[in-house]
Design a binder for these strands. Structure first.
Length: 294
DNA sequence: AAGGGTGCCAACCGCCGGGCG
DNA sequence: GCGCCCGGCGGTTGGCACCCT
């Protein structure tokens, strides 16, 4: 073809990928100081770096920008903000990131992804003991086709709660989960494919079918733990909107050994670390029922 | 001590829309 | 109007460190 095309191919062959070196960062920083965060492609055309403009821009935005909160974990406040905004905007990470100073869309995206994985794992563990913790999180594709209809997904009902209201909704904790005695099992409607005659069950809310997304799980928060709270259904969905399903207790939860463990599950065994202190959610108010979600 | 699971992060890929010739 | 280039964005992947058994 023409010369222009051939040059383009040669350039592509010469493109560098992979982790950035300190020297490359310095060149990029120098370019931005001189020309501003633009003309990314000129960095390459000037022969300053063997990186694509896209790669340069990404490096600057995600790593080199001076206003970034690098190495700072998401606070509970950040967490709430992300959850709120994700509920409002969906997976518009760039937009959400604009509400979080020092955070990039990549940060938010990674945070949300980790959270989704954790939630999926928790739910998977609590409903499918035979297959828990056997697959690497690297195989993320299984998360896109989760085994449950209700795993929190990428679109959530739009909420208009105040932050205080939402925090308050997290506050009702129950120290135990009450297990349904074996033999009094109600088959978990949309939840589990595990044979019901092989596992005892933990009371579990039957999520609203038309609102399958559950957006308000804080990082590290004991979703499982709250399932046993008497007010859980009222808090989260409005009692009238829900029935109750049961899900099997994971083997690790059953194996506590004591006679009580037959009927009661120690909440500590269900909760991840980093759980926000209870007094974080001092004020208790009720969430609106799903009928109020718009 | 070793191996597997998990969390976190950096970076790439593909798609899309806007600008421009 | 069309094609190309560029930048922006969301999704995905791979690597590494840490933790647990």
């Amino acid at each position: 073809m023409d010369g222009k095309r051939r040059i383009h191919v040669d350039e592509l062959r010469d493109i560098k990928k992979g982790p950035w070196k300190v020297e490359e960062d310095q060149v990029l920083i120098h370019h931005v100081k001189k020309y501003g965060p633009r003309d990314w492609s000129s960095i390459r055309s000037r022969g300053l770096l063997r990186r694509t403009g896209k790669s340069c821009r990404l490096r600057w935005v995600n790593k080199l920008r001076p206003d970034l909160k690098t190495g700072v974990k998401f606070s509970a406040e950040d967490e709430r903000t992300v959850i709120d905004l994700q509920a409002q905007f969906g997976n518009k990470w760039a937009k959400i990131a604009t509400y979080l100073p020092g955070r990039t869309d990549n940060d938010v995206k990674n945070f949300w992804s980790s959270r989704q994985k954790r939630l999926a794992r928790i739910l998977h563990t609590s409903t499918s003991p035979s297959s828990s913790s056997t697959k690497s999180h690297k195989t993320t594709k299984h998360l896109q086709t989760p085994p449950f209809d209700f795993i929190p997904s990428l679109k959530a009902p739009k909420l208009s709660l105040s932050r205080e209201q939402e925090f308050a909704a997290k506050s009702q904790l129950c120290p135990t989960i009450e297990a349904v005695p074996f033999g009094e099992v109600v088959y978990p409607n949309p939840i589990s494919a595990v044979p019901v005659d092989q596992q005892p069950y933990v009371s579990f809310p039957q999520f609203p079918i038309l609102q399958p997304d559950y957006p308000l799980l804080l990082e590290g928060q004991d979703f499982i733990g709250r399932l046993g709270a008497p007010s859980f259904l009222d808090d989260e969905f409005g009692h009238s909107a829900l029935g109750t399903a049961q899900v099997p207790i994971a083997p690790s939860f059953q194996a506590s050994g004591t006679s009580e463990s037959h009927d009661m599950v120690d909440i500590d065994s269900l909760i991840d670390d980093d759980f926000p202190p209870i007094d974080l959610f001092d004020q208790i108010e009720q969430l609106p029922s799903p009928s109020h979600w718009s």
